[in-house]
Design a protein around this nucleic acid. Structure first.
Lengths: 112, 112
DNA sequence: TCGATATTTCGATAATAGTCGAAATATCGA
DNA sequence: TCGATATTTCGACTATTATCGAAATATCGA
């Protein structure tokens, strides 16, 4: 799963991790790039680079709304990542494998 | 939490992710460096670099056993990472925050 | 269509990370 | 103590990633 390396690499940066956490906390309504840039206080071109990185890894989804591009966290990507990390954990000793968030019907589902 | 960036960065590499997953699957008994090197087919010096990276990030723990150094996965580090990623998720809409593995009393606990 | 707003792409530069052979360190058994 | 085994540290090189200003693209309202 080279996708897992890409997702982890996308999160392994101060600014990108901050962006992702903001979007996780915001929920399915998402935030425009401008709001995020203001929150982080970095140049637009730098933010754009990081948003593209997160999107390429499937961790965020971009949708246009007028002149703004709205970014939303993809919770399922995190679930998949954790499932992959913990796959066949611990020589068969039972572990919780519950999804962290978002995959239960009726709760804030986001396209995978 | 710069520790989260460090942990994510430690996992964001083909070889280190493979090492970590092997140790997750091995459980608390752990594996010596030599076994891991053989499984991955990379030079000792390269593996040593990656193991040190994982250890620095708190994802694996090293203990000596004779001439061998045994490495063990630290499940709690992953739990902490996921908790941090999903903190205050989704504008208060309820989410599962169960630990993935290893923090329940009686099940394969590893020092944090 | 034009000017303003929102965001991305480009290009150059600076910084960090990965690779691997060779030498160093630690432990063991004889 | 000595030779063998297990692993790490060092050093030099290459490759990848981050940064940010300036120019390009997309959308809107008038």
């Amino acid at each position: 799963m080279p996708a897992a390396v890409e997702a982890l690499g996308a999160l392994a940066h101060k600014h990108r991790l901050a962006v992702f956490r903001i979007l996780v906390q915001t929920g399915k309504s998402g935030k425009p790039a401008s709001d995020i840039a203001q929150a982080l206080d970095i140049p637009n071109s730098s933010l754009s680079f990081h948003l593209a990185h997160l999107a390429r890894a499937g961790l965020v989804v971009q949708t246009r709304q007028g002149r703004s591009l709205i970014y939303t966290a993809n919770y399922n990507a995190v679930n998949a990542l954790v499932a992959y990390l913990m796959e066949n954990c611990c020589e068969g000793i039972p572990c919780s494998t519950d999804a962290i968030c978002a995959t239960k019907p009726g709760l804030h589902e986001v396209a995978a």
